[in-house]
Amino acid sequence: MSILLTVVSLMYLVSAACYVIGLHMMRTPKTARNGNRVSGVGMIIAVIMTLLVAISQKEATMTGGIILVIGLVLGLGYGAVRARTVEMTDMPQLVSLFNAVGGGAAAAIGAFDYLSKSTGSTLSFAFSFPVALDLVIGGITFSGSLIATGKLAGKISGKPITFPGAKVANALVVLVILVSVVLTIGFAVNPSWLILIICASLLFGILMTIPIGGADMPVVVSLLNAFTGLAVSMAGFVIDNQALIIAGALVGAAGTILTLQMAAAMNRSVLNIIAGGFGTDDSKG
């Protein structure tokens, strides 16, 4: 390991510790704000370290570098401005939107690495399995969170939306996802499998979220948040980066516990909220 990589790896560890300490501090109102800042400092350290790696990278093309800078400036700017200007009451849907883009980014990383393998080549299970999971979970959270954003913002009716044959449609889409996962994992690289897996996952995200009533949305957003964590973790396996694996797994697990607590606070079970939407007209209390 070169000196730079050693330093970067050690600093990734520091940032991982910051996330854990930050989450821990966010459990009580008194320390919550500082907890978020501790975790934010960890994130800044990790991003700076990654940019150092980027600068030292000699294979990168000029265009790649320009795209990186433009994407970062636009993304950071848009995110920060939206977060600064949003009304307090509109925050939940903004969180849901930020969750959606996180899932989308994880799926884009998976698609990038899958396509970078030449068509027709066989993949190792250690690569194809996380890629498939990354695409499925990332796709579901992307479209699902966007629907949740729309429902919370009132752009989509907050009432449970159901249609005849919804159960059959769900079952079919799940089947297509399973088939495309098998195709991705077990067969040679083919861009068609990628398109199939992404389309089916996006469709399932929509079908999963539209039958759920607006009142249950915060729990659903929290669940999708945990999903995104898992997708990010899988993206970490795909590109072999421990910073992503740690952050994603941490959020996946913490988000799951949080989802259970939120559902319990509403005297509901998570299964009841998710399954209650499947094919029934009203979400039972």
Binding site: Y19, G22, L23, M26, G35, N36, S39, G40, M43, A46, V47, T50, L51, V53, A54, L68, G71, L72, G75, V95, F98, N99, G102, A105, A106, A108, I109, N225, A226, T228, G229, V232, A235, G236, I239, N241, A243, L244, A247, G248, L250, V251, A254, G255, L258
Partner: peptide, 15 residues
């Protein structure tokens, strides 16, 4: 806050 932490995905995107 947890949502912000999985923003670490940007590290993978940069790479």
């Amino acid at each position: 806050g947890a949502n912000a932490i999985h923003g670490a995905v940007v590290i993978g995107a940069i790479l």
